[in-house]
């Protein structure tokens, strides 16, 4: 996708739409999920019955949004963003070094986001895990909790629902930790054209390719 000047946006409209829909659903599901998990503990959170209704509806909506993302990835070629680049370990090491040392010295981000490579190496690995493993796991366990009759009657002598429940809780806790790190990096590390502003307005990077050595491959269709 490009803007009115013909320049390509760092984050095309469909990606921004997905991101913010995902964010709203994600946050609401965390709040209602905590209200359910810690029901009766203290006075905070949403009432149990309301939390059940909201959590169920938005959980299904999140699955829809996820499917939209998969479809859009396939159509636009965004899926290529998830293919790790070589040399993988050196790139990861460079990124880690930036976070633990370079960032304090005011160094440039080694892999600043650009149209062709929106993720840095660590982001790339984290998002591969999120999109292709953790997210599906959360959906499967969520479906099991939404339709408990589908769960096996017993697992290891316990009710068959508890592995799904524990798995759902583990992923939810992981999602909370991810959210903290994601917000921190987006709000404080992202630069003018690659941070929160870019995710709101799409923003544009002059010319193709990044400022730090990303070659300019062929443009992805639909972007």
């Amino acid at each position: 996708m490009s803007d009115s000047t013909g320049e390509r946006l760092l984050f095309p409209r469909w990606l921004r739409l997905w991101h913010w829909a995902n964010a709203v659903l994600f946050l609401t599901l965390i709040v209602t999920g905590f209200s359910l998990h810690f029901a009766g503990v203290g006075q905070g959170g949403v009432g149990f019955k309301l939390a059940v209704t909201i959590h169920n509806l938005l959980g299904v909506a999140l699955v829809g949004v996820y499917l939209f993302y998969l479809g859009s990835m396939a159509v636009t070629g965004h899926w290529r963003q998830y293919i790790p680049k070589r040399p993988l370990f050196q790139r990861i090491f460079k990124q880690v070094l930036y976070y633990i040392w370079g960032i304090f010295k005011g160094a440039h981000h080694p892999y600043e986001a650009c149209v062709e490579a929106r993720f840095n190496p660590i982001q790339q690995l984290a998002y591969i895990a999120c999109v292709f493993a953790i997210f599906p796991l959360q959906i499967v366990t969520g479906i099991a909790l939404l339709y408990p009759d589908m769960a096996p009657p017993t697992v290891w002598g316990m009710n068959g629902l508890w592995p799904a429940a524990v798995g759902h809780s583990v992923v939810a806790y992981g999602a909370c930790a991810f959210l903290l790190v994601h917000l921190y990096l987006a709000l404080t590390v992202g630069e003018e054209h690659t941070g929160v502003r870019a995710m709101v307005f799409g923003d544009r990077k002059p010319g193709a390719g990044g400022a730090h050595g990303h070659p300019a491959p062929h443009e992805s269709p639909g972007e």
């Binding site: 998990h37 009710n159 508890w162 799904a164 909370c176």
Partner: peptide
């Protein structure tokens, strides 16, 4: 647990403890 998973009643205290610990550490 043998009979049923009951949201809010049968949560795992150990899991909750470590999860909160990890989030706090983050």
């Amino acid at each position: 647990i043998n009979d049923s998973y009951v949201i809010g009643a049968t949560r795992n205290k150990t899991l909750d403890f470590f999860a909160i610990l990890i989030m706090g550490s983050t």
